[in-house]
Write a protein that binds this DNA or RNA. Structure first.
Lengths: 215, 215
DNA sequence: TGGGTAAGTCAGCGATCGTTTACTTAGCTA
DNA sequence: TAGCTAAGTAAACGATCGCTGACTTACCCA
């Protein structure tokens, strides 16, 4: 066997990150105590303050981790088809290891910095989806529909986490089919969906000028 | 002016319920303290224990209130068209008074009884939607798609609560158009939705033949 | 092989949590 | 109008929260 060092700061840090991501995603920020996390990680509580300054710092570190993973995946899926597959995978893929990390994007800590990361990431994902649909990322109507696809995906994650049957145990392939229909209906490249709307969307577009995604 | 009784148990109870519903929906269960609620309501903290036994009891009372409101609305909208309108209204309607009460259905208190109310309500809403679509409430594939519509609605509520632009400030009529497309794609009475995809969806339907949960 | 330092432990701080108890007071009725 | 009861108040309980500072110990290198 590999003789693991009994004292390894990087490994301990990672243990804390893993435990925290699970707890924060599953139970939420304020329902999770630092002692819960430390116990799960099999590590002393004081090390959270040492490695992450504070509980908020630990949460931000968790958030940065999932955001990085997510941006990496998004970067590799630029077409509408592969993006749809990515969504179905992230939503319905096997999460035997950890609870679905998309949940972390919906957990609020009350910390302003973390909140900003959350919002920036969600905004970036929407724009990516709009681009994948063949449109411009600042077309407000298209962006709205892209965010609705995002909302459907995140809502599905939540309901699955709530163990709502049969959605909770639906397979990834079933979800893929549904999301293909959903994406086709909302983001179809051919604009045939002029069913029934008629009001202005202009003023909503202007105030969405936040920082952009970086690799 | 009307001279309101300075001591009115029913009115005070309602003040607490209103303040609690707002706080629980906005900030979540564990991030809200009973002192927050009592202060918002302009009422002494001890009255929460008196009228609702505990913080959990207060949360259950809030949940029952929104569930009753919701079931009332659902009862009056049995067709797929009116149900779609109801969804758009609940999701995008003016929530100047209170934060969107659908949020409460997604807030977990850790209390088992409250969790059961939550799950039962979500399950019931899905079945209602499946029936409105002209199907049977125990058809697992249809129920899955109905729950996906539900997921889209709830996800939208969450992203609007997170103030994601332009979704957060989109008008009800814009949302109505989107949700009409979405419902048409997922719950179209005529099963023509096997068209748009090239991947197989058939074997996915086969393994989902087991009997589902009870009404 | 001994010493320096990073890694980890331990106990406890002050604050806040939900809840309870003893008390005061307003309002209806006899 | 006297008095009883329900409505509301004030204070504090024990538990738990996030966090800190002093301490111990394992590991690496000279």
């Amino acid at each position: 066997m590999t003789n693991p060092r009994r004292r390894d700061a990087a490994a301990t840090r990672q243990l804390l990150l893993d435990a925290a991501r699970r707890r924060f995603a599953e139970d939420g920020y304020s329902a999770t105590s630092v002692r819960d996390i430390a116990t799960d990680a099999g590590v002393n509580v004081a090390l959270i303050s040492r490695y992450f300054t504070s509980k908020e710092g630990l949460f931000r570190a968790c958030l940065r981790g999932t955001v990085d993973d997510l941006k990496q995946s998004v970067f590799e899926n630029t077409t509408l088809e592969s993006a749809t597959g990515l969504i179905a995978e992230k939503v319905g893929g096997p999460h035997t290891e950890q609870p679905n990390q998309l949940l972390l994007l919906l957990r609020s800590s009350g910390d302003e910095a973390a909140e900003q990361i959350r919002l920036d990431t969600l905004g970036s994902l929407g724009r990516r989806l709009a681009v994948a649909a063949g449109g411009e990322p600042d077309d407000p109507e298209l962006l709205l529909r892209a965010q609705l696809v995002l909302a459907a995906a995140l809502g599905t994650v939540i309901l699955r986490a709530a163990r709502l049957q049969p959605l909770a145990t639906a397979g990834q392939d079933e979800l893929t089919g549904c999301f293909q229909n959903l994406v086709a209906a909302l983001l179809a490249p051919a604009p045939e969906r002029t069913a029934a709307e008629g009001t202005a969307t202009e003023e909503a577009a202007a105030e969405n000028a936040g920082p952009e995604e970086q690799a």
